[in-house]
Simulated scan of single mutants.
Amino acid sequence: MRDPELEVLTALAGTPSHVYELKFKLEERGLQKSHSDLYKMMNSLERRGLVTFTRVPSEKGPERKVFSITDTGKERLIAARRSGIHLLLSDYFRVVAGTFQDLMVSEFESDRPLQRVALFTDPYSGELADLFVAATADLTGSIPERWLIAKGAQNAEGFERLSAGAENLPCRDGVFDLIIAPALPNWDLEATLPELRRVLAPSAQLVTFLPFAEEMADSSLIGGFILREIAAHYPDMQIWRQVDFLRELDTHFDVMSVNYREFSLIFCRPQPETH
């Protein structure tokens, strides 16, 4: 349900307005409010320091109050937007994690035995990391060794914990049959990819995601909205063009990309050593 106060603050973030102008702007956004309701709302916002006003002469009748958003109002608006995009991202990553499970079932039903699996959660944390831990735990329950590798303090039942960064792993060559790295697009690929290739067995796979690609902005209005909100509120989250990300992976791996809705699940096998 839309918050009328946030709609008003959003309108005022663009330009100061008097109540009649605000009413028109809200109607353009599909929100109907009477003049009396708007006056009550503006008085409430003004008392809480979210908006302020100046009186300007009117060609007809008394002076008008022209409202503008305050710094406190801007902070309230930014916090609300961040909360909203966090909920959207949470739902989105639930879809990604669920789809990952569906698409990976065939991998775990194959005849190729898997002995050691590694899940890298950095730089995700909290709920986003927990989603992929849960998805991986469900898929890999019968595998003898499961490792959770992260710099942070995250733990998960059924996983051995290794505190390390993906760019410098204290592991022998070719130790893992499968590596799952959902946040790989956010890493330093130049440092990370050679190390991941080193610890993968020759016939093993690296599985990663490209959850947000620049092409999303071309595919749908909601895709463009998501990318703008991520850029505004999560500036550390890297947004790639799919072709550029796949080109980086292709320097060390044979790559197959499965596009699903607006994200890609990417399977990478180590390229043969060249001498």
Rank of each mutant, 00 (worst) to 15 (best):
L6R: 11
L119A: 00
T208Y: 06
I179Y: 02
T192N: 02
E107I: 10
Q242C: 04
K151H: 07
Q242F: 00
P272K: 08
E5Y: 12
S203T: 13
F225Y: 13
L50G: 02
E59G: 15
P113I: 12
F132K: 09
D102Y: 15
G152F: 10
T140H: 09
F267Y: 09
K23G: 02
E28P: 04
E7M: 11
S163M: 11
E167P: 04
L200F: 03
E190I: 15
P113A: 04
A13S: 15
E273F: 07
I226C: 05
R172N: 01
S220Y: 11
E7Y: 07
P57Y: 05
D130E: 15
D188M: 03
V117Q: 04
R197G: 03
L189W: 09
L265G: 01
L50C: 09
L249G: 03
H18G: 01
F132S: 11
I230P: 06
S125K: 09
I149C: 12
M216Y: 03
G158M: 08
E7P: 01
L139G: 13
R82C: 10
V199D: 08
S257Y: 00
R82Q: 15
D122V: 07
I266N: 00
A156D: 12
D250M: 07
R55F: 03
E127C: 06
S125Q: 14
T121Y: 00
F100S: 08
E262T: 13
L193D: 00
T54V: 12
L114H: 08
A183F: 00
L162T: 15
Q271N: 01
W147G: 03
L89E: 14
R82S: 04
L193K: 04
K74G: 04
A153D: 12
K25M: 14
L184K: 02
G126M: 07
Y39I: 15
R48K: 14
P62W: 10
E109L: 13
I78Q: 07
L12E: 08
F212L: 08
A137Q: 11
V199G: 00
A118I: 11
P113V: 15
S34H: 07
V117L: 05
G126A: 05
D244L: 10
A135W: 03
F108D: 06
D102P: 00
L265R: 00
V19G: 04
P194K: 02
A213G: 14
T15E: 14
L128A: 13
T274L: 09
T274A: 14
L103W: 10
